[in-house]
Amino acid sequence: MQAGLPLESAIAEIVSEIRTRERMKMEIAKRITGDPGASELLRRVGELTPTEISVCGVDGGLLQLSLSTLDIVVVRAVAAIFRYSGRSLVSVDYYPSERVPPNFFLLKEPLDSARVGTLAGMRRQMLEVSCAAGVVRGGMADLVLLDGSVVPQYVERFSDSPECSSLYDELMDAYVGLYEEVDGGRTVLAGFVKDSRGRRFCEIISERLNLDGEGRRFLLGSRDTAILDAILPKGWRTVAFPYAEESPPRPDLKGWGGRVYAFYMRVSEFDYPFRVEFLSTAGSPEEEADRISSLVGFLSSFGLGTSIPPVLVEADLRARLREEADWIQDRIVDRLGLGFLTRRDRRPL
């Protein structure tokens, strides 16, 4: 879009662009589904109502407070563990506890706000991974579902910040520790990625199917979930594909990245497809994907228009720190006065 378009023109251009892309998406979807090779890429998800199963959802809450002389990061992670008998939720536990007190970290390095955000995110992930490892170690669940990817998503290595760099190394070790706990045990580790920006499956389609130049270009410029929204029916999933194919090699994960697989699935016609990642521990990844997709399909079947498993919603409810921000800030101001707040927080209007 050109700079400086008047409001009405800008909105008209946005609407026109969305319509064009939607039309192209539907056209390409029609061609994909008409291609005999497409059936090899999609699988029906087996229906499952487990007799007895324990499922754990792990999520973290994060809060950043910027004061004039330092930044404060407040984080916590909670695992909600649901035990089902058939479709009945028979008991609920929380790990490490029902009400987890938040952890406070003071950032004394003068970092820019983006770096503070990254550090805060790493702190939260550290707690989430430790929490998940604790559940696996304790044999508390058959499936541990992380909110998001099972692989850390950092591209840079933070060589300019000793604090970030050190935390990054710790985080990688924590992930490796989690994989080691899962490997050979009875617990399955999977990640539920709500709004994936992945594009690997579009690449797979373009490689496997006979698409012309325009279709191929559009496909390679699209996100997986956008295209799959048009071609993946309710109750279906894609084939599983290796995570390593879509990301650069991760030497800091000590080879575990090669055992992570992903697939997309859809459980509701009113919701977008979502991505599931899992650590392959035994047998063929496709067979593991069959079992995991059935289980996730069961977990996602409680809502009408949302596919997010209730166990993850519950973990999010218990971990979130939204209301604590004002409380923490008020307590600090009570003791120190307004002088320690940033200008933004002290403005009168």
Binding site: F82, L89, P310
Partner: peptide, 26 residues
């Protein structure tokens, strides 16, 4: 808190209601 949002209550009606999906009583 589970029942504060009408859309959430409606959302989980299909699966037997919010209480079937979440530990609401707790």
């Amino acid at each position: 808190r589970y029942f504060e949002r009408t859309d959430a209550v409606w959302e989980y009606e299909r699966g037997g209601g919010l209480s079937a999906a979440f530990p609401t009583k707790m």
